[in-house]
């Protein structure tokens, strides 16, 4: 019985992680400029690993595999902010202007100085 519940919960976590990964991927395609795309990439880099690793951990229990999975999660959560920050900083230093939009202005503006 507990096995069944664990399987269901882990399946839901995996599918949730998959859904957020696809949404993040769509965001990376869809958002107007480099900085907003970074935010969309952030979804696939934070919540998707959390949910997917959580789901996988529930399937293996207390084993070495779990330890390594949690280590992977720790590495990912520690390194992705550094990579995002480095990318944003490099893009700013290179002179790319972020798209800014006020609440009244609805027109699409694209950064094109690349």
């Amino acid at each position: 019985m507990t096995e069944l519940i664990l399987d269901v919960v882990s399946g839901l976590l995996l599918l949730g992680g998959a859904a957020f990964a696809v949404i993040g991927g769509i965001g990376v395609m869809r958002f107007p400029d480099i900085f907003t795309r970074l935010h969309a990439g952030g979804i696939t880099d934070t919540l998707a690993p959390l949910l997917i690793v959580g789901g996988l951990v529930l399937q293996s229990g207390f084993t070495l595999l779990t330890f390594k999975l949690l280590l992977i999660l720790l590495f990912l959560l520690f390194t992705t902010p550094a990579a995002s920050h480095a990318t944003a900083r490099a893009a700013l230093v290179a002179g790319l202007q972020p798209v800014t939009r006020d609440s009244t202005d609805q027109k699409e503006t694209r950064s094109s100085n690349s």
Binding site: F20, I23, G24, I26, G27, R30, F31, P32, D33, F35, T36, H39, A40, G42, I43, T46, L47, P98, V99, T100, R101, D102, S103, Q106
Partner: peptide, 19 residues
């Protein structure tokens, strides 16, 4: 925050990027 950004991906008119 992920849920908020995911909602913004589905409806990109909601985004208001600012520095």
């Amino acid at each position: 925050a992920n849920i908020a950004v995911a909602a913004a991906v589905i409806n990109p008119r909601r985004i208001r990027p600012r520095m």
